[in-house]
């Protein structure tokens, strides 16, 4: 067991190191993306243009020996453009028949760039693929090759002509990571690296089988019952109008986190424990991953929007108010 854990940590560190060759700083984003991949989850990256979101995903695909496709979402993008379609093809016998032409979704890593620019119809085409990891076209279900990740980006500004992601789709993302501006030294490093003729070459650090083993190990990591209960209480505390809700949730939330939020928190905590060399998830892990795992699952009410309250603000208050002791039915107020 200790060998497997050591292998996990080693692989994680190698991938991170390879990504570090092209991505300067953004440690939280890189860690978060890698945690989501280790937990077999999808990631929504939100940030203004030019912060390296697309570069990060491309570098990741290079560091892990996986197939990669990029889809630029635009308002006129159709579901078939992503999933694929049946085309009338002539077979070697000269007879014409429908033949399925795979779309870009048939890849291990799919970069859905500016996903909020596509229409809801097109966005919804991703739902089955993200959850069931299969595509239904022409009445036939086609399995996607494991592992399968959707790494989507969206731009928080320039909202005209965009279509906010439906809640169902948002809920399917394991993490929502907010990409922020680099600091002064980081920006200097970015400029230095990108304006020189010779650039670092990203090596493949992990292959597909190794990644699958890592994902399997993550699910085995034990979570103490009181840590699990704490995660449950956190999720329950976000449900407004219930006995378990904290005040801030009642005041600012219209809907709280779904059970997927709890699953994501626990899985992410497990990955974080492994990456830190521990063999069990802890309260600290839960607290560290809660924002990224839950922020996109909370729906703010009008009062919160009017006051400029964000889901991060609500979640921080929830983390403050929920005690680490107690049963799932109890939320310390």
């Amino acid at each position: 067991m200790e060998d497997r854990i050591a292998e996990f940590r080693d692989a994680f560190a190698r991938v991170k190191k390879e990504i570090g060759k092209t991505i300067v700083g953004q440690t939280e984003i890189v860690d978060g993306t890698l945690q989501a991949i280790c937990a077999a989850g999808h990631v929504l990256l939100e940030g203004v243009p030019g912060l390296g979101k697309t570069l990060l995903v491309r570098t990741l695909s290079e560091a892990i020996d996986l197939s990669f496709n990029r889809v630029q979402f635009t308002p006129d993008l159709m579901p078939a453009d992503i999933l694929g379609t049946n085309l009338v093809m002539e077979n070697p016998d000269g007879r014409r028949e429908f033949q399925f032409q795979q779309g870009p979704i048939f890849s291990h890593i799919v970069l859905a760039d500016e996903i909020n620019r596509a229409t809801p119809k097109t966005q919804s085409a991703m739902l089955e693929a993200m959850q069931e990891k299969s595509v239904t076209a022409g009445g036939k279900i086609r399995r996607l090759d494991e592992p399968f990740f959707v790494l989507a980006t969206q731009n928080p500004i320039d909202q005209e002509g965009t279509y906010p992601l439906p809640e169902a789709q948002l809920d399917r993302f394991f993490y929502k990571l907010l990409v922020t501006y680099p600091s002064g030294p980081e920006l200097t490093e970015v400029i230095d690296r990108t304006t020189q003729p010779r650039q670092e070459r990203v090596e493949r650090a992990v292959d597909r089988q190794q990644l699958l083993r890592m994902q399997g190990l993550v699910r085995e990591v034990p979570v103490p019952s009181h840590v699990r209960d704490y995660a449950v209480r956190l999720v329950l505390a976000t449900h407004p109008g219930t006995d378990t809700a904290v005040d801030v949730a009642n005041q600012y939330l219209r809907f709280g986190s779904s059970p997927r939020g709890g699953q994501s928190v626990i899985l992410a905590a497990k990955v974080r424990a492994l990456t830190e060399g521990r063999f069990n998830a802890s309260f600290a892990d839960i607290k560290a991953v809660a924002l990224a795992a839950l922020r996109h699952r909370l729906i703010l009410n009008f009062e919160a929007q009017a006051e400029g309250i964000t889901t991060d603000h609500v979640l921080k208050k929830v983390l403050e108010e929920v005690s680490t002791s107690g049963t799932p039915a109890e939320v310390a107020k």
């Binding site: 067991m1 085995e220 990591v221 034990p222 103490p224 019952s225 009181h226 840590v227 521990r278 063999f279 069990n280 998830a281 802890s282 309260f283 600290a284 892990d285």
Partner: peptide, 16 residues
């Protein structure tokens, strides 16, 4: 970081 409580709770686990 819950190392002791995890050890007590999962002491009988074969793998962990």
């Amino acid at each position: 970081k819950e190392r002791l409580s995890a050890a007590i709770e999962f002491q009988s686990s074969e793998s962990w």
